[in-house]
C-alpha cells in the first residue's frame, strides 16, 4: 500500500530565519525535515540548498549533512561514547578532521550549549536529561552546520530544562546567525521564539507566515488538531467583551504591555486608540 506523506509542499527559508514547524501527529513534519538534508528523497519535486538542487547527480550529500544539522527526537538515546567530549567529537572526526581539530570543534560546541568543561570527561549516561540533550545537540553543532533542524527538542523536559534548551537555540540563532527550524507541539514556545511558522496538516503546507498572523486563524488550527497560545484566546475573549486589544498578541510579555498600556495611555495623554 502506498500513502502520500507530503503533497505539493513548497516554501523558501531565508538565511538566518528562526522557523517553527507545527502540525498534528502524522501531518508530515518529520518526513518533511528529513527531506531537507537529503535523508529522504521526494517522489517528485526537489530541495534546493543555496540555490543548488541537492538531489542532482553528483551533489555532495555528505557535505550537505554537515551544513544542515538534524537533531532527532530524544537525541540522547543516540549518545554512545565513554565520555562526553569523545561523543561530541564523533561527528567532526567522521567528517575527516584531525583529532585536535575535532577536539576544538567539540569544545566550542559544548561551550555554545552551556555544558560545564568539568563534565567533559564524564560518561554521557551520568548526567541529567536536560544536559544529555544539550550534549546531543552539541554533537550536531560540532559539525559546523549553518542550518539547525530540531525535532521536538524539549519533549519530556521540565519547564526550566525547556527554557534552557530554547534559550540556547535562540542564542545560536541571534548570536551565530544560524538558521533554525524547530519542530514543536508547544504553541507557546513557537509564539515566543519563531520569526515564521510552517503549519502542516494532512501532508500539506497550510500556512507559512509570522506566528501572530498564523495564530489569528486559531479556529482553523483547532480543526487541524492544533491550538493557539492561551494569550491568543485571551485577546479574543477581551475583544468579544468590547475591549479592543491587539488580536495578534500571543506571548505573556505582549499581553502585559498591551493590557498595562491601556491604563497608562489613557491616564496620561490623549493619543489613545
Amino acid at each position: 500500500m502506498e500513502s502520500c506523506a507530503l503533497k505539493d509542499v513548497s516554501f523558501e527559508v531565508e538565511d538566518g530565519l528562526f522557523v517553527g514547524l507545527i502540525g498534528h501527529t502524522g501531518s508530515g513534519k518529520s518526513t518533511l525535515i528529513q527531506h531537507l538534508n537529503g535523508l529522504m528523497k521526494p517522489t517528485s519535486g526537489t530541495v534546493y540548498f543555496d540555490e543548488e538542487d541537492i538531489f542532482a547527480p553528483g551533489y555532495d550529500l555528505k557535505g550537505l549533512r554537515s551544513r544542515v544539522g538534524l537533531v532527532f527526537q530524544y537525541p540522547e538515546y543516540q549518545l554512545f561514547e565513554q565520555d562526553i567530549i569523545t561523543d561530541v567529537k564523533f561527528g567532526p572526526k567522521n567528517m575527516g578532521l584531525k583529532d585536535d581539530e575535532a577536539s576544538g570543534r567539540a569544545e566550542e560546541a559544548l561551550r555554545l550549549v552551556g555544558v560545564d568543561p568539568r563534565l567533559y570527561k564524564r560518561s554521557p549516561f551520568e548526567i541529567s536529561g536536560g544536559q544529555k540533550r544539550r550534549v546531543a545537540i552539541a554533537g550536531v553543532l560540532a559539525m559546523g552546520p549553518r542550518v539547525l533542524i530540531l525535532d521536538e527538542p524539549t519533549a519530556g523536559l521540565d519547564p526550566k530544562g525547556r527554557d534552557e534548551i530554547l534559550d540556547c537555540i535562540d542564542a545560536l540563532h541571534t548570536e551565530k546567525g544560524m538558521t533554525v527550524i524547530l519542530v514543536s507541539h508547544s504553541m507557546d514556545d513557537v509564539a515566543r521564539y519563531a520569526d515564521r511558522l510552517l503549519v502542516m496538516d494532512k501532508s500539506r503546507l497550510c500556512y507559512y507566515d509570522t506566528p501572530k498572523e498564523v495564530f489569528t486563524h486559531y479556529k482553523e488550527l483547532e480543526r487541524m488538531g492544533l491550538s493557539a497560545p492561551q494569550i491568543t484566546y485571551l485577546a479574543a475573549d477581551l475583544r468579544r467583551a468590547g475591549i479592543m486589544v491587539d488580536e495578534r498578541m500571543s506571548t505573556i510579555e505582549e499581553a502585559k504591555a498591551e493590557i498595562l498600556g491601556f491604563f497608562h495611555d489613557k491616564d496620561k495623554d490623549h493619543n489613545s486608540i
Binding site: G23, H24, G156
Partner: peptide
C-alpha cells in the same frame, strides 16, 4: 507518568 509528553495539542486534550 507523563502520558502527554509526546503528544500534539489535540492528543493532549
Amino acid at each position: 507518568d507523563e502520558p502527554t509528553a509526546m503528544l500534539d495539542p489535540s492528543g493532549r486534550r
